[in-house]
């Protein structure tokens, strides 16, 4: 763990310093103050992402540092969309997620700029990674809702939001098409770059496993979801577990060395 004494590092720390008080304010029922701080954090996260983009001269989605920077940006718009369009609560969780995803970018992952290797110089690079990351944020939000459901907690602030189990389904229903698109775009890109649309690489297999867990979620919920709603939430949490392995363990553990190793 190291502190980054750079403009990039400073921007990340200030963003975290906005997201965390936003979370505390929302928990303390200062909803308005929380939203203002959350938006301020988002604006800073955008500046941080654009700064990185200019610095490295390509879409900054190449390695884990840049991916987590992007996740820090994506939290606010997704949270706003879920609150306004889907009536899903838990904005406190979004603020916390924002701070959590920026922590590895600020303190753990190496921010050394890297030149794009030939395989990454493809127009599919940015959409493939961005679509996956957006789906991950939806699935992470779904996991928080599933946790609320399992703990039998009621929405804290908003009274008009939908129940956690229903919210979990809505979030997965929004995130799953993105997860599917990410998988298919990756496969198409693999064909262009490596000659095979499916290479049986550890990252590919883990991403297939996470996609299948959500496929299982939909089938289970259709079959027995009303009888055993708590198992629905367990499925959602299992999905997030496989996503975490796909995103982090596969890239960081040496046992999963493969074609996606440059993302480390």
């Amino acid at each position: 763990m190291e502190i980054k004494y750079t403009i990039q590092g400073l921007l990340i720390y200030i963003t975290m310093a906005a997201y965390l008080p936003a979370f505390v304010a929302t928990i303390a029922r200062r909803t308005r103050a929380g939203r203002v701080l959350f938006f301020a954090g988002f604006a800073l996260a955008v500046i941080s992402f654009v700064y990185r983009w200019i610095h490295v001269r390509h879409v900054p989605l190449q390695n884990l540092f840049e991916v987590f920077l992007f996740l820090g940006v994506a939290c606010y718009p997704i949270s706003w969309f879920c609150r306004r369009a889907l009536r899903i609560g838990g904005q406190w969780a979004d603020m916390l997620i924002g701070a959590i995803v920026l922590f590895p970018a600020g303190f753990i992952f190496n921010a050394e700029p890297m030149q794009l290797p030939p395989a990454l110089q493809c127009w599919l690079f940015a959409p493939h990674v961005a679509v996956y990351m957006l789906s991950y944020v939806f699935m992470l939000k779904a996991t928080f809702q599933a946790g609320e459901h399992l703990l039998n907690r009621r929405p804290r602030v908003e009274e008009t939001v939908i129940p956690p189990e229903q919210a979990t389904y809505e979030l997965i229903a929004i995130g799953f098409p993105l997860l599917t698109l990410g998988l298919v775009l990756g496969s198409w890109w693999g064909k262009l770059a490596w000659g095979h649309y499916w290479g049986w690489d550890p990252k590919e297999l883990w991403s297939l496993a996470s996609w299948l867990v959500y496929v299982g979620y939909f089938h289970w919920r259709h079959m027995s979801g009303t009888k055993h709603p708590r198992i629905n939430s367990l499925w959602a949490m299992m999905g997030m577990l496989t996503i975490l392995v796909t995103l982090l363990w596969v890239n960081l553990a040496r046992i999963f060395a493969g074609l996606h190793s440059y993302a480390t």
């Binding site: 550890p202 496993a209 299948l212 867990v213 493969g258």
Partner: peptide, 15 residues
């Protein structure tokens, strides 16, 4: 579930 489990096992085998 079987395919998800096999995919996880396959990931440990190498490509």
């Amino acid at each position: 579930i079987l395919l998800a489990g096999l995919s996880v096992c396959g990931a440990f085998l190498g490509a």
